[in-house]
Amino acid sequence: MLVRYLSQIGRYFLMLAEIFRKPTKWSVMRSLIFKEIDDLIIDSLGIVAFISFFVGGVVAIQTALNLTNPLIPKYLIGFATRQSIILEFAPTFISIIMAGKMGSFITSSIGTMRVTEQIDALEVMGVNSLNYLVFPKLIALLLYPFVIGIAMFLGISGGFIASVYGGFGNSTDFISGLQMEFIPFHITYAFIKTFVFALILATIPSFHGYYMKGGALEVGKASTVSFVWTSVTIILVNYILTQLLLT
């Protein structure tokens, strides 16, 4: 069991090295990258915006409802909303959702190419299929921090709107809470996490699709397994990075 996991992990790192060997012609690669940006980044914006806005609102309302003591200042609503969205909600929570959305898309599209011999066809022609399939995804996901940036902005906006228009506090309080004890390194920390999560989101689902065996049914199973491993890895890496960067 353990040996199997270790050999899988070994194979994963060998795959990473292979992605950068024998690159595909630039004119072809360029259009692949644009396609991946469209499929992975642009296509995710809607759901990310929707979730961030409303979860941001809920975070603000819940904080407000818990501040029943009149001695606690109202600007804490803005402060708590900012902290939870920037530190955890936007980078980590959204990435777990993306492990489901982008991840299952990546695993099933590469897995389908595997079972229908399209990957063999690429190899026979002399194309490095890992470079052809995974490299453009990696590059497209360099834009992933923008997605998370949007999530942060909309999450806080949602919090602002919910707290001001929900009658939990006025806008001056909320904004002064947003500005309170602002530590710039928290933003750096959040984006370092985001960047690492982007690499995980591009490569782990690709690995599960590329090395799958079987037929159409197994493509579905591989997507599920891939989601589990991608999210477990994100959670673990989140813990390790937090320990390393914030303590």
């Binding site: 012609k25 004119s27 072809v28 011999e117 399209q118 066809a121 026979v124 022609m125 002399g126």
Partner: peptide
């Protein structure tokens, strides 16, 4: 390898591409 053509059992056409793009793929690459 560029002198070799292969017809796979299940055709193995790239399903994100049109017929024209499939056929032109080896030339483009």
């Amino acid at each position: 390898r560029t002198e070799i053509g292969m017809v796979f059992q299940g055709s193995a056409l790239f399903d994100s591409m049109t017929v024209e793009e499939n056929v032109g793929f080896p030339l483009k690459m």
